[in-house]
Amino acid sequence: MTGLAAWTAAGRERRRGERGDGGPGGGPGARGGWSAIGARARRRRRLRVLAFLSPWLIGFAMFFGYPLLATVYFSFTRYDLFNLEYVGLTNYRFLFQDEDAWHAMRNTLWLVAVTVPLRVLFGLGIAQLLTHLKRGGAVFRSVFYLPYLVPPVSATVAFVFVLNPGTGPVEHLADMVGLPMPDWFNEPEWSKPGLALLGLWAVGDVMIILLAAVLDVPKHLYEAAEIDGANGWQRFRHITLPTISPVLAFAAVTGVIQTLQYFTQAMVAGKVAAGQSDQPGTQTVPGYPGGSTLTFPQWLYDEGFRQFNMGYACVLALVMFGVAMLFTLVLLRQFRAFTDGEAS
């Protein structure tokens, strides 16, 4: 079972549905004649569907539908959880004056533009490497996958320490070979690359779906190419790549959506590197060093749950909704293309 197969399985099932080979409960009586019984059966069937779906229907309405509408409502108010005041477009106007919000958005876009392609390329590279390994493939696969499972907070704390100049072992090693080391999480110019590095370390998720996709490429295509005398690169370029490109696109789009939410690692890296923060009596500013790790979701958190500008936080949430929705639509389109493509 692979990613690709999962997608196509959905399409297979759907086509079968269109052919209309009797669903559960749809006995022969349901079609013609006995309309009264048919109606009752239909109602029963509908109730059953409803019963099975009900947890999620309620959940969707309560934890998604309602809050989404409420977010729109609160975005027109000034609300600190004590006092509510309707302020019209004030919060929206502030968005355009709020340098920190734009700064945070630039940081998030930087991370999207750099980490997503790097992770996909690196993941693909490792996947390719794994398919070429004759011995110990399973061990290597586990080794490359494992860092992805390390809790993000722990991974970030570890990275800040390991890369910490003066005390961290990496600088120590670099010194031995005479490599200059930047002050990773203490320099505004290097903190985001540091986070990108952390993302590459935890490449396991991308690696494993790409590995599945690569292994899923039909062997006979390679054999045919081999008879034609194609070399390694040509086989990769003309067979592997076209076959797995939908999975690559899928990895990229989901990567974008995930990176738009990038919060934990950036926040923890800033906190741990600053060291001083989080002590009573100090007022901390997110995004240490120099606001370079302030991502958009962090700014939303800061406005909402530290400043308690709930109304403005809702405006920021709606901005996020817009961007994320855009990419979700791309994903949904892709999904449809997948399942339809299988028919031809």
Partner: peptide
């Protein structure tokens, strides 16, 4: 797919 941050404020309330 949609980030949890989108609905966090009303839910918190």
């Amino acid at each position: 797919m949609l980030p949890p941050q989108i609905t966090v404020v009303p839910l918190y309330i």
